[in-house]
Design a protein around this nucleic acid. Structure first.
Lengths: 229, 229
DNA sequence: CGAAACCGCGAACGCTGTTTGCAGTTTACA
DNA sequence: TGTAAACTGCAAACAGCGTTCGCGGTTTCG
């Protein structure tokens, strides 16, 4: 009979993502936990035991609340992941400004991204998903575009380059974490001569220490340098 | 009382992965479905509705059987994903042999990988996970190493390069599928001047058509060419 | 003061991967 | 050939998941 009490997390017709929704209503009691507390708890869980450990019940439990209460703040688990990603992207601050060429500056930012992925190995899995960018993500894109201002290239090319660099950073992070990597233990290599020969060789020195820098430099110049005027 | 009837999918102490386990036991009735049929059904489901649609019940249902029956062939869902991945990697055959430099040949293989990812957009998600390589995956690695035979570089560097190329291929596939990409619709860009300026610009021409080739060539030479003797 | 809006949550729904126990079938061995 | 072992397929069930519903208590607005 009473007017439909809508969940504020649903938002009106206007508030479709978390970022366009108020953190709390103006009427009822104060929420016992803020959006930041929720994001922090979820990130801590993911850092400790991977993204699979971030269940609504687990996050709620870590904050001493019941699972359905989370839906007062989030409209879905995807919202939670968006919150986590944006919170971590905020750790990229402050953005490089001063020294060197634009490539040096961009590489510095890439190194910060690499460190971020090392700190939060679940990040690629959380980003591999249609994501609504939060304020920190927007600020990061803005900083990237600012760094690329001296580059004479179209906007589309710049976005492509940014996405590619981000992707390569996650590739390096993955290979370092040895996750998602095939292991050749206990495999019969008799039918694969080149593989067998490769493993018969004495273990060669690991690749160049500055492989990261060389890869990204060649990628940036390849992507953002056009050879036809 | 009777001796413990062990599930053959569990394997003995020796058979830990699918690939080291017999497709069927030597004693009982013939299975109504083969390993290949199961993999094919799962791949079809994933191609149609994404990896999330590949549930044990759905795969079993597509083959007209009940869910628990699948565990006569697979010891877990991860086994199923391993089967799917290896089945798709088999589509990369035949491997390049004849024409051009080693870079040309490797690039041809990369193009085949790109087409493969376009056909099976769920592949990156299925590979992002500790995977046991099947025969097709081993053959693919073997072919890669064969193509890289003229290259004077350590084995570790070659594996790094192969993994990186595979990763970049999946990045290109992703950007083409526009999945896992942030969208800037309905976002207030007032606080982000460079982003706002980028979107205010007339839409620039899309990046170079042969971006894929240029990127991979610069990556390969960057990764596998050492400038200190 | 009353009404509206909001917070937290117990209970429940449909889904998931997986295990158990049993009936029926085929093969190997004595 | 007879019998025991091994195998297949499945109904039922379990724990966990994301999510929804509806209620009682709390805060704020008009």
């Amino acid at each position: 009979m009473s007017g439909a009490p809508r969940n504020p997390a649903d938002g009106g017709a206007a508030g479709r993502s978390i970022w366009t929704r108020p953190q709390r209503g103006a009427r009822g009691p104060a929420p016992t936990h803020s959006r930041d507390e929720i994001a922090a708890a979820a990130v801590a869980l993911a850092d400790a035991d991977g993204l699979g450990a971030v269940s609504m019940r687990a996050v709620a439990g870590a904050l001493g609340m019941a699972a359905p209460s989370l839906y007062r703040h989030l409209s879905s688990r995807d919202d939670l992941l968006d919150l986590m990603v944006d919170r971590c992207v905020g750790e990229l601050r402050p953005y490089p400004t001063d020294d060197g060429t634009w490539q040096d500056r961009f590489l510095l930012l890439a190194r910060r991204q690499l460190a971020l992925h090392r700190r939060h190995p679940w990040l690629p899995d959380a980003i591999a998903r249609p994501t609504v960018p939060g304020p920190n993500t927007l600020a990061h894109f803005d900083a990237c575009l600012r760094l690329l201002q001296p580059v004479r290239a179209g906007v589309a090319a710049k976005f492509e380059a940014i996405a590619m660099v981000t992707g390569v950073v996650s590739l390096f992070a993955r290979s370092a974490a040895a996750a998602g990597t095939v292991t050749f233990d206990h495999v019969d290599l008799a039918a694969y001569p080149h593989l067998a020969a490769a493993f018969a060789e004495p273990p060669s020195a690991p690749p160049d220490q500055d492989l990261f820098e060389r890869t990204l430099r060649s990628l940036l110049t390849g992507l953002l340098t056009t050879d036809h005027p």
